[in-house]
């Protein structure tokens, strides 16, 4: 964009950006998407389903491409394809333990096939599209108020379902055998979670593009889980980190002429590295204190 330079006067900066309605929409959509993707992503990281998440995000691309080709709403393409793919994955992994080695091949097959479909749809459309680049790497330009409403409604639905199934889902993710013995529907929750994941991915893909969904889905959750092992705090931290990375990315993309997806991913990745650094430092300090006290105690 570069219509003005960044001035560290954040109030002034935000006032300037928010004087443009499309930027207001971008921030609104960004906030919705960041919160939803972070909350779902926290479970993805805990359940070690990042490959499934990646596949569903890739599926967003043929969904959007088909919507453009066939001329129906882009959101419909995203949500329809992602949720359908989520159900397909659930079908393929029936009877398997979550995270089992057998699932990756099936997921990979779905992923490759749908990516190829996306390419076909692009080719059929013959070019007059804003380009595959936007679908793959995201854009924050031209988000309409209608789109923001759709995102918000889908987001509220996903968060609502997640709030209801959250505790049993956590139990089933960490300790499936005991959860099943306690009457938790482990299989059903696994399918339900994949559908939620599909919906959340479809949301995030509309901002970050199909390939960079991970920036919002996995990085904040992985960062938070490095920092704390308390489930509640960790989940809250994930949402805060995702939100912060998205808004900071939007600010950066407004003031500097580089793509949004790059900024969001870089900020999230930097936070991840910082978190790891902080943890290494704290364990090193703890070891040092321990090794300093042991000889004294032994003597």
């Amino acid at each position: 964009m570069g219509s003005a330079s960044f001035s560290w006067n954040l109030v002034g900066d935000f006032q300037q950006m928010w004087s443009y309605p499309f930027m207001v929409n971008a921030f609104r959509a960004g906030a919705t998407v960041a919160v939803v993707a972070a909350a779902v992503g926290w479970f993805v990281v805990l359940r070690r389903q990042t490959f499934a998440a990646h596949t569903l995000s890739v599926v967003a691309f043929p969904g959007a491409a088909l919507a453009t080709l066939a001329g129906f709403a882009l959101s419909l393409g995203y949500f329809g394809f992602c949720v359908a793919a989520a159900l397909a994955l659930a079908l393929l992994r029936r009877g398997r333990e979550p995270g089992g080695s057998g699932e990756s091949a099936a997921i990979g097959i779905v992923q490759a096939f749908l990516l190829a479909c996306g390419y076909l749809f692009m080719a059929l459309y013959k070019g007059l599209l804003e380009g595959p680049q936007t679908l793959l790497f995201g854009s924050f330009l031209g988000i309409t108020t209608g789109q923001v409403t759709t995102l918000a409604m889908a987001g509220v639905a996903v968060l609502g379902v997640l709030a209801v199934i959250g505790r049993p889902l956590l139990f089933a993710s960490v300790d499936p055998q005991v959860a099943a013995a306690r009457g938790v529907p482990v299989r059903g929750l696994s399918v339900a979670f994949l559908v939620l994941l599909g919906a959340a991915t479809a949301e995030a893909a509309q901002i970050t593009g199909a390939l960079l969904v991970f920036a919002l889905m996995v990085l904040p959750a992985a960062t938070a889980q490095v920092l704390t092992a308390r489930p509640g705090l960790s989940l809250l931290l994930t949402v805060v980190l995702g939100f912060a990375a998205t808004w900071a990315g939007l600010v950066a993309a407004w003031f500097w002429p580089y793509p949004l997806g790059f900024f969001v991913t870089t900020i999230a990745f930097a936070l991840f590295l910082l978190a790891h650094g902080a943890r290494l430092l704290s364990t090193a300090l703890a070891n040092r204190i321990a090794s300093a006290t042991i000889p004294a105690g032994a003597a």
Binding site: A163, I165, R167, L170, V174, V226
Partner: peptide
């Protein structure tokens, strides 16, 4: 590398099968 505390695992035995937000 599972980042869940022991106390949380114990707690799941108590209310892990309940739906909704505590």
């Amino acid at each position: 590398d599972l980042r869940i505390r022991g106390i949380d695992i114990v707690r799941m035995g108590l209310d892990g099968d309940r739906w909704g937000v505590p």
